[in-house]
Design a protein around this nucleic acid. Sequence first.
RNA 1: GCCGCCGUGGCGGAAUUGGCAUACGCACGACACUUAAAAUGUCGCGCCCAAAAGGCAUGUGGGUUCAACUCCCACCGGCGGCACCA
Length: 811
Amino acid sequence: MEHYDHEKIEKKWQKYWEEHLELFAADDESDSEKQYILDMFPYPSADGLHAGHVESYSATDIISRYLRLRGKNVIHPQGWDAFGLPAENFAIKTKTHPSLTTQKSIATFKRQMKILGLSYDWSREVDSSSREYYKWTQWFFLLLYKNGLAYRGKGKVNWCLKCQTVLANEQAEGGVCDRCDTQVFQKDLEQWFFKITDFIEKKDKTRGLLGGLDDIDWPEHTKAAQKNWIGKSEGAEFEMEIKNSNLKIEVFTTRLDTVFGMTFALIAPEHELVQKLKQQIANWDEVEKYIEQASKKSELQRIAEEKEKTGVELEGIKIINPFTKKEIPLFTSDFVLGHYGKGAVMAVPGHDCRDYAFAKKFGLPIAEVIKSKDGKSSIEKEAFVDDGILSNSREYDHMTSEEARKRLAEWLEKNKIGRKTVNYKIRDWLVSRQRYWGAPIPIIYCDACGTVPVPEEDLPVLLPDDVNFMPHGESPLAGSKKFQDVKCPKCGAKARRESDTMDTFVCSSWYYFRYADPHNKKEFAAKDKIKKWLPVDLYVGGAEHTVLHLLYSRFFTKVLHNLELIDFDEPFLKLRHQGTVLAEDGRKMSKSLGNVINPDDVVAKYGADALRMFEMFMGPLEDMKKWDTKGIIGIYRFLDKVWKIKSKVQISNIKSNPESKIRTFLHKTIKKVTEDIEKLRFNTAISALMIFLNEAEKEQIPQEFFEKFLILLSPFAPHMAEELWSQLGHKKSVFTEKWPEYDKDIVKDEMIELVIQINGKLRDKISVPADISEDDAKSQALASEKIKTFLAGQEPKKVFFVKGRLMNIVI
RNA sequence: GCCGCCGUGGCGGAAUUGGCAUACGCACGACACUUAAAAUGUCGCGCCCAAAAGGCAUGUGGGUUCAACUCCCACCGGCGGCACCA
């Protein structure tokens, strides 16, 4: 018998679906319950779809098709995260304009999505590099600006002297430029920032970025990563006097309980106080040299040199510990970060590893002020960093660390030199990029009026075409006269445009709103459309976005909520990450290793239905998995069997025998597949379909049953389901059908195999009615020959009975 | 270092959330069909034992329980995130 012709069938139905867009379109008018099923919109690379894309898109396609069959009004859109550095680099390499290469890549992606039979509502497609889209990205910038959430500030960035450009952190690994291998320097540049730090904690109407995490169904590790990134730490800050100076030094600590062990203090090299103390520093030349060296190092380098602490004493400077009134020295060291806390710390070498290492290297005293509860702790070889009981701390002796922190903070407040406080690792979001392929920042600089936002009616600020996007020292947009020279919108004088573009993460922070109303020319999306479709019910995408994109999107949503433009606070109610699909050799798929699986090839050989289903069958959605070229044959055989079993179907309208085994089986399968899809457990749903088919092969099954099976199969293998459905004489698509319901009474077994254990070990199984009573089960069990042998005449001490499951006899 | 996740046959994985460990699939073996191969079908497939009976098995060691892959503790191994954050 012939195998099924996947190519012919798939082409036929893909064409049919193109002609019947209403099958998968989200209906703005319908009153039925909406479901927003979203894929992270891809960056359209020249390489085409990756096996990982196929995995997540198949998953959301299954869910979307399933929900539509359940009568839900599903919105399942797709679009393109089209701006970004890879396109620009590719453009530089090939000397082609990035819009050309991007459009070509989009065409490839879209073609591949279509041959996979993905049921997107293409009428809602968005492209973040289109002027219709980035007009609203710019509008969002202005919205933030007008509400004091976008500001211009100085920030340290990685700067390559040779390429004359700013580099992203990931392009400056090891402190060396990615492109030319020369050293990267830290440079202070004025940049645009978004005030994401304003939204860490509850603010007016919204729960903060921290608190909001409690309300959403996200993977634990993703929530943990976001919390980690925000890096909240509670402690205290206080000021210390500098001897013979009216200046003061402020420090932050989480271990106020250890203050009596402070034997010196540390300050970041870039701290302004160092400059202010210049006159009093005896060894200024040495200090200046150290500061110079430190500024040349990138943060990455500082970390790489972790093994050895460096630093210089600010000779002539003495700090007064406010608790002990003792004088201590001040050092500057690059392991103290200027941007965190107060940029200066109290050093307690006895109870902090870094301070310990520093004290050892510079021969500074180490004091012990905390003992472990058992009194056995020692600071001889290393710092004791745990909480414990205070000692050598005057009236605070014998207190626990926790209590001492409370009391010491009270003392600080009473004496007005400090207070309890909270610090965060997260910094404001730097959104300026000195790049071409992004959305221009809609700002104009005027000598008279200063920083002037572009009026909304002038948006979009178009990305100019007449620029040299090769790296040449400044933002490529600065090279376009046409772009640069403008009139000030306020006074009409000659002015200059901001020449930086926005980080592509700005574009991707709001795209899920646009799908609700993609062609709106007056708003980023109309209020009623947003109300209808958002928030997103299920969001599926790669785990590489655990922090950046997902955090930024939450920030945008919170901004909109706070401004009362939307009535929800979290954009993505349920989030799942698809696991990485590794190459067959267990390594990451990469072009250079030549181990990439191209979906086109697999579709050509086995068909889209087989590829989609196989990727779902490989394992749980979120698990990392290895591609297995041989494995797909199993799914192919299954589909082939479905194809062939059609000829065995009893085509008649006779009533199915209510007692028939296959009926019970069908209902169990409906139950299992339904529940598994709801839980995104596609691997076991597919296995249930296989089990049903294996059973069905053994006998003739009524058409009515086979049809229900086809509906169950349709979200997984839509082409085959459509084809067989039409071959059975149906005129309309299988996707206009209703998802089958199972009958609770049919699913329930009448007779069950009751497991009989003795002392927890399986000894026999007896066939009994499902609702058998304990007494009846016991007498039947004890009557079993096998059980009699094992009991050997002994009386059971106790009998445990789990209804419908098992009986455990303890002797 | 801190945080999070994971460890089950030759392989991918399943196990109703504490109740028959290894469903489903791959690979492998035997047989059937075939001139032959492929395809397809039937059967077998954790380990020990010739087999039956039985025993042993979910990274390792302990604990709780009538009962542990599942819960608790310790250790070993792997993956991911953050990382000189005071």
